[in-house]
C-alpha cells in the first residue's frame, strides 16, 4: 500500500500542524510519501522529514507552484500519482481546490472531509452539514480524499533520523491562470483548526467595533477568533474566520459562542468541541441545545465582565 500526502506551504512556511494531524488520520494506511510544493521550499521539506509516519519527502520546487494554483499542482500530482493507491491531504481550501482536479485526470472519485479511515477502501464522512454520517467504500484504483484534521492529534516527531528527501521534476505550467495577489492577514493568534480555545462572535455583536470585544477575550485567553456567517457577511470579521459547514471545522477544548443563534450550518463546524459555552440574550436560541454551559443575558455586559475576570 502506498500513500501520497500533499503538504501545504505558504511563502516557504510548512503548515506543520495540519500535516502532522493528517499523518495521524491516515496512519491506518501506513507510512506516507509527503509532497511538499512551492518556491524555495527546501526548509519546509526538511521540517516535514522529521515527522513520524513519513516514508519520504518529495519536493516540487518551482516558481509556478508558488501560489498554490490548481492547474500546475494537479499536473505535478498527476505525474506522480499513478503509482499510488491513495492520494490525500488535510481538508483546507488549498487541497479541496486541487484534489478534485487530480481525481478527474485519474478518472476516479474524490472524497471530501473524511473523518475516519476505516481501511484501505472504506471511509467515513459527514453529509448534510454533519446531520448524517456515511460510511462509503470506494471501487476506484486510486483513492483520492481530503481529511478533516481538527479531531486528530498531531503525529509527533520521529524517534531517530529523518526521512529521505528527494526532488521531483515539475511539469510545464499549463498557463491557464495567473496569480494576481494574496490578501492574507498574518496573525499572532493560534490557527482556528488547531486552537485549544476559540471565542466566536455572531450578528449579536452588532458592529465591527463591538466585535473587538471578542478579540480582547481571545487574546486574554490565548485563543483563536471565530465568527458566524452573519458576522462575516456584515463585515464584522474577515471571511477566513467563518466557522461552520462552509467555513472552518473546529474542535477546540473550549468554544465560546457569543451572540450566535446556533443555526445548523454553524453547529456543523463546532460539534467536536469538547466544551461549548453560549452567551445569548434569547434563552430559546438553538445554541443552548448543544452548549455545555449557557449564560442568558446581554453580551455587552457579560462579555466585558468575563474578559475582566479571566486570566
Amino acid at each position: 500500500m502506498s500513500v501520497l500526502l500533499l503538504a501545504e506551504v505558504h511563502n516557504g512556511q510548512l503548515l506543520k500542524d495540519m500535516l502532522a494531524r493528517t499523518l495521524t488520520a491516515i496512519a491506518p494506511l501506513g507510512q506516507a510519501d509527503v509532497l511538499v510544493t512551492g518556491q524555495n521550499c527546501k526548509a519546509a521539506a526538511e521540517e516535514a522529514s522529521c515527522l513520524k509516519g513519513v516514508a519520504k519527502v518529495l519536493i516540487g520546487d518551482d516558481a509556478t507552484l508558488a501560489h498554490g494554483q490548481a492547474e500546475p499542482l494537479a499536473a505535478l500530482i498527476q505525474s506522480l500519482g499513478a503509482s499510488y493507491d491513495h492520494i490525500a491531504a488535510g481538508a483546507t481550501t488549498f487541497s479541496r481546490n486541487i484534489l478534485p482536479r487530480v481525481a478527474m485526470v485519474l478518472d476516479v472519485m474524490v472524497l471530501a472531509d473524511v473523518t475516519h479511515v476505516l481501511d484501505a477502501e472504506t471511509f467515513e464522512r459527514p453529509v448534510y452539514a454533519g446531520n448524517a454520517i456515511q460510511t462509503v467504500q470506494s471501487r476506484d484504483r486510486v483513492k483520492v480524499f481530503t481529511v478533516r484534521t481538527a479531531a486528530f492529534s498531531p503525529s509527533g516527531m520521529r524517534e531517530e533520523g529523518t526521512a529521505p528527501v528527494e526532488s521531483v521534476p515539475v511539469p510545464a505550467d499549463p498557463a491557464l491562470s495567473v496569480w494576481v495577489e494574496d490578501k492574507t492577514i498574518v496573525s499572532e493568534r493560534p490557527d482556528l483548526t488547531s486552537a485549544k480555545i476559540i471565542i466566536s462572535g455572531g450578528r449579536g455583536l452588532g458592529s465591527e467595533d463591538n466585535f473587538h470585544q471578542i478579540t480582547l477575550l481571545a487574546d486574554k485567553l490565548g485563543g483563536a477568533v471565530g465568527a458566524s456567517r452573519a458576522a462575516v457577511d456584515a463585515g464584522y470579521a474577515p471571511n477566513d474566520w467563518q466557522v461552520g459547514q462552509t467555513g472552518k471545522i473546529v474542535a477546540p477544548e473550549l468554544y465560546i459562542a457569543v451572540g450566535i443563534s446556533g443555526a445548523i450550518q454553524h453547529l456543523a463546524g463546532i460539534k467536536d468541541s469538547r466544551v461549548i459555552v453560549a452567551i445569548n440574550k434569547d434563552e430559546e436560541a438553538p445554541i443552548f441545545q448543544v452548549a455545555d454551559y449557557g449564560l442568558v443575558g446581554d453580551l455587552f455586559t457579560l462579555l466585558p465582565e468575563l474578559t475582566g475576570k479571566v486570566g
Binding site: A132, T135, S138, D292, Y293, G294, L295
Partner: peptide
C-alpha cells in the same frame, strides 16, 4: 464509484446546564 455502506445519525451532544 462509491458504495454507501451505511448512513447513521451523528453522536448527539447533550444540552448542558444554564449558569446564572
Amino acid at each position: 464509484r462509491l458504495t454507501v455502506l451505511s448512513t447513521v445519525e451523528p453522536a448527539k451532544r447533550q444540552a448542558g446546564v444554564k449558569v446564572h
